[in-house]
Simulated assay, not measured.
Amino acid sequence: MIKSKFTKVLVLLLSLVLIMAAFTGCIKKKEENIDKKSEINESNKVGAIYPLEVEDDFGNKVTIEKEPLRIVSLAPSHTEILFAIGLGNRVVGVTNYCNYPEEAKSKEKVGDFFNVNVEKIIELAPDLVIQYGQGKEEVNKRLKEAGIKVLSYEPESIDDVINLIDELGKITNRQRAAKMTIVDMMAKRDFVLSVVSGKEKVKVFYELQAKPLMTAGPGSFIDELINLAGGENIAKDAKGKYPQFDLEQLIERNPDVYLTSKYGENKTVDSIKSRDGYENINAIKNDRVYILDPDIISRPGPRIVDGLELIARKIHPEAFK
């Protein structure tokens, strides 16, 4: 009888212990979830202070009074940056050429680099407009008169892109997301550099357009990508970033790799190889002519490091096997 009572008490005590453990576990789990949720909520709010004084690439000083919640992007590369740092839901207007990521295609269109629809932008009531280059003076004036903040950026290297992502992260209070994007970019860049490290430089020509023949000269994005990818740009001493290039000079310098991209042209590898005078160029003879995606290799946004890898794989395919 006593043993039976003792057993019942023991079972009751064990049940209470299990209940308390489960209860404590639930509380701990709930606390962990709350902490995790708080961490997510705070992950991109690590110190932005408004009003924030900002100076863009052209010396324009702008005061950002509060966290921008409605943004118009006037460049595909800027659009890609904004989406990359988690601001897709704040982008209310983009250009006709903003096609990446897929969600960007559904945003309101406000024209393009050459023809900006100012009325449409004002109608969208953005807190901030980000454009590539200085933009048109009249457009800038009208936007500012409407009380819209305008910032202008023109990154010209991978480092410039990284700095811009960091800057936009601060302006929009998405610092941590910006840092994560930058880390990913630097990892991809460093991977490519390590793969081509020590490889012999390969002579490369990049065709911007055929008639007249134009290329990417010193200081251009393509020039930097070719150099980082283990190539030698045969137009490295040309005058200007995008100069004309003589056919005679092309044949004389004899590139081993011929790169180009499609910009609405009816261009194929065969059409390039069949051009008069091209038959003696090494790149033509050795079937090393490549047509690349212009959106990846020339947009100064997060995917520019993908462009670097793409070019490196064409210049040094053996290094990636």
Rank of each mutant, 00 (worst) to 15 (best):
L82E: 01
E102N: 08
P302I: 12
T268E: 10
R90Y: 09
M1N: 10
I40G: 10
I251A: 12
K211L: 10
I64H: 01
V72G: 01
Q209N: 07
V72D: 02
E265F: 13
A84P: 05
G198T: 10
E224D: 04
R142W: 02
F320V: 02
L52H: 05
V195C: 09
S194P: 05
D190W: 08
H78E: 13
G135K: 06
L13K: 05
C98H: 07
P101N: 05
K61Y: 07
K107I: 14
L213W: 01
K262H: 13
R90D: 13
P243R: 00
G133Q: 14
F245E: 00
I311N: 00
D112E: 10
E232Y: 14
A22R: 08
D276K: 15
I85M: 05
G307P: 08
Y132A: 15
R275I: 14
N140L: 15
E154L: 06
K201M: 05
I34G: 02
S261Y: 03
N233I: 14
F83H: 09
L16R: 02
T181R: 07
K144C: 10
A146K: 09
K179D: 15
E207W: 11
R176K: 13
L228P: 03
N280M: 04
N266K: 13
A22E: 10
Y50V: 04
K136Q: 15
H78A: 06
D306T: 12
D223G: 01
I121D: 03
N140F: 10
A283W: 00
N280Y: 04
L250S: 03
E55C: 14
P126F: 04
H316Q: 12
S152T: 01
L87T: 01
F6R: 12
V54P: 03
E55H: 08
F205M: 07
K45F: 05
T79R: 07
A235I: 12
L213C: 13
S15K: 05
E32V: 02
I281S: 02
G231M: 05
E55P: 02
S220H: 03
L250N: 03
E265S: 15
K107C: 04
A238Y: 04
K8Q: 11
G169Q: 09
A238G: 13
D256A: 13
R70T: 07
L259S: 00
L14G: 11
F320T: 06
P155W: 02
G231L: 11
N280R: 09
K61I: 12
D295I: 06
I19R: 07
R176L: 12
R189F: 00
I162Y: 01
P300I: 03
D56W: 11
K30W: 13
G169E: 08
T260A: 13
G217L: 12
P317V: 08
K28H: 03
E102H: 05
G47C: 07
F6Q: 05
F113D: 08
D127Q: 14
K201P: 06
K141S: 15
K105M: 09
L14P: 02
